[in-house]
Design a protein around this nucleic acid. Sequence first.
DNA 1: GATGAATGAGGCTTCATTCAT
DNA 2: CATGAATGAAGCCTCATTCAT
Lengths: 225, 225, 225, 225
Amino acid sequence: MSLSIQQKFEAPAMPRSDDGRRRKPTRIQSLRQGEIIKAGLEVFARYGFKGATIDQIAEKAGMSKTNLLYYYRCKEDIYLSVLQRTLEMWIAPLEEMRADGDPALEIRAYIARKIRFSREHAVASRVFAMEILQGAPNLERVIRDDIRAHVEERAAVIRAWADAGKIRKIDPYHLFFTIWAATQTYADFSSQIAAILDKPALDGGDFDAAEETLCDLILNGLLPG
Amino acid sequence: MSLSIQQKFEAPAMPRSDDGRRRKPTRIQSLRQGEIIKAGLEVFARYGFKGATIDQIAEKAGMSKTNLLYYYRCKEDIYLSVLQRTLEMWIAPLEEMRADGDPALEIRAYIARKIRFSREHAVASRVFAMEILQGAPNLERVIRDDIRAHVEERAAVIRAWADAGKIRKIDPYHLFFTIWAATQTYADFSSQIAAILDKPALDGGDFDAAEETLCDLILNGLLPG
Amino acid sequence: MSLSIQQKFEAPAMPRSDDGRRRKPTRIQSLRQGEIIKAGLEVFARYGFKGATIDQIAEKAGMSKTNLLYYYRCKEDIYLSVLQRTLEMWIAPLEEMRADGDPALEIRAYIARKIRFSREHAVASRVFAMEILQGAPNLERVIRDDIRAHVEERAAVIRAWADAGKIRKIDPYHLFFTIWAATQTYADFSSQIAAILDKPALDGGDFDAAEETLCDLILNGLLPG
Amino acid sequence: MSLSIQQKFEAPAMPRSDDGRRRKPTRIQSLRQGEIIKAGLEVFARYGFKGATIDQIAEKAGMSKTNLLYYYRCKEDIYLSVLQRTLEMWIAPLEEMRADGDPALEIRAYIARKIRFSREHAVASRVFAMEILQGAPNLERVIRDDIRAHVEERAAVIRAWADAGKIRKIDPYHLFFTIWAATQTYADFSSQIAAILDKPALDGGDFDAAEETLCDLILNGLLPG
DNA sequence: GATGAATGAGGCTTCATTCAT
DNA sequence: CATGAATGAAGCCTCATTCAT
């Protein structure tokens, strides 16, 4: 699947060939852009778009600000690239849910993937969350245009399971909203959760417990008595 | 209950009496401060701390920037006041859950209160969420010191219900994390949800559906088969 | 003697009678103005004109800023009043030097008066010094117009003593400049002097030693061998 | 000798190499910093720290405010650099006084150097004076820690001369205070002196007369009858 | 007399971005 | 490719001063 946030998105600052078309990025360009995205992910996650500074990103990426601006025209372009990346990561787990599988197994696996995402890509999750929180100015369109369709497909699966009596009747959309929220919270609100658990930070055991509790709750809630 | 984020918190720019204690705020002071908090809530929710500008808040509050700074020494003080307000609103629903009530009713009522909060105070919820998202720099301590204890009390209730066989065994903390996430998402991530539902914004019916789905799911999940 | 810095000087903010003439200041007006001048002296001495704030002065004077501005139209007026005061204090010691006295005694007494001034009115001395340092924008005229004449009178005394062979020939102006500088330095530069002497602040003994050393030096330097 | 006001002092805004050490300043950096210090000297001398504005300094230095802030992180850093410069100039004349020289010649030469400093670097002298006047907040430590020792060395020379009967017994510290004050006054208080002498400004003849009068007075005062 | 409320100008600093090398 | 130099817009905050009670 290819989701694209915006057109301006597809073309960073890179020089063009004489006829105005973009050239294929050189090896070093791809390399540097990857470093920048990685650095940007961390900085945007912590400080938000306005709060982040190009200097911070450049430093974390180990290059000068001016050099960074050689690869990305402006701050917003970095941000959009970062968002694009998070978007792809966000959608991935959903893709794998299969209509012909066993509902319990499929749902359990989906929850597991989402929890793993929160655990391994908490920073990306937070960038995504912050964008949504602010009204999703850069994501609204792509969500409405592309992601909605994907969700609709999966919702149909849920609905089919319910119609077949394999799970209780439930609004599939709100089921997804609940699963998303309940899994992502371990990335997005981990500082609150860690504070409540009186730990310095969440560890592997916490994520395991989260997954188990959540699977129990949801599967018990979903499966027919 | 009185939660206090910080000491500096307790006193805006207002003049003091000779002995250094705060005087009782005049009517107009309370009025203006209320207007500022209200405006700040909206602006901080949309743009985050760094992204918000005093000018925006002042304009929304219908006063000049300088006048606003007559009531709050600096931007951070406004923000802390706003956070304080959201914190109090956030904790309130938890307080009402009663150990001697019927588990199903109590949990259902708790979820309803949380959903109502998301519906009626979405802006406050977002400010709170954004603070947590950024690592809760201003809330970490009060969560660890005060809120944790409150949650522990309610967790004990859940545990007691489970021990009495009234509900299934479940980790009470993760249950709360799930409920919080699943309810607050309708405030914090409403723009995503609305986009998925292909609506311009969430309406009352959406919140009702959310509440119903969530109650079904959680209660089915919790109550003994 | 009456030295007047400027015309605007003669009339603070005080209300006028109906025919526009100033009224005689009431007792409370004189009282408050005295408090303000005293406070202003300290604040201007420490922070300079720009660095001083009306708030600081008001606080030190124990009144509200607005109230202070009831007595003085603006910051500059306070400053000018303060300067006026320092000017009068500065000129006083010079007035007492008598032509018909014994040169040694007169000069010794003059130095003693100047040292006493530095000791007892260090703050005023510093305000005066700071004004001069900045080019004496408010004092230049009155120095040229009034003080110069006073100095000229005393210079004539010195010259007469020299002509009479009571003291060596010396340029009387530069003699005064030396005495002024050498005595005032114990007020104006006391922080440097205290640091060199490795003390927290100058004490009575230091001023005594200063006076003695200075008198010895100058009298030995002046009196005919 | 190397006097250092503060650590923060040693490094303007300039970029660092990866290991955090400062790089050698480029030619243009040294150039611009010199221009800034020169401009700062004049502006701080006239208006004091608070009274001076970065804009004024930038304009005098012939660059934009922002560009100036590219070289110095903040106003205080400029000021500290300026102070550092004046400090070095202030201490220099003291260093050359030699114990094995003839007292009369050495003292005369010292006075001459101090007068020359007042004449040629009046602006620096005033910046230094203003700092001291305000309580030497930035110089107190370096005076107490470093300069005091230098003065102590020279004081020992004076004391040795006195013990050897080459000059009268005198407190060497207060002797220095007098010489400093009496020479620096021609820089610091030149506007007052010029007004008393009824001249627009001091000229070479005035400094010569000052030097001569002062040398006469002090040497007559010091040398054994 | 005295104080609370309000304002506008000005100053410091940050930061994205552009220019030159 | 990469960096140093330069800029302008914008934001926070201070402060003298005025208005209204």
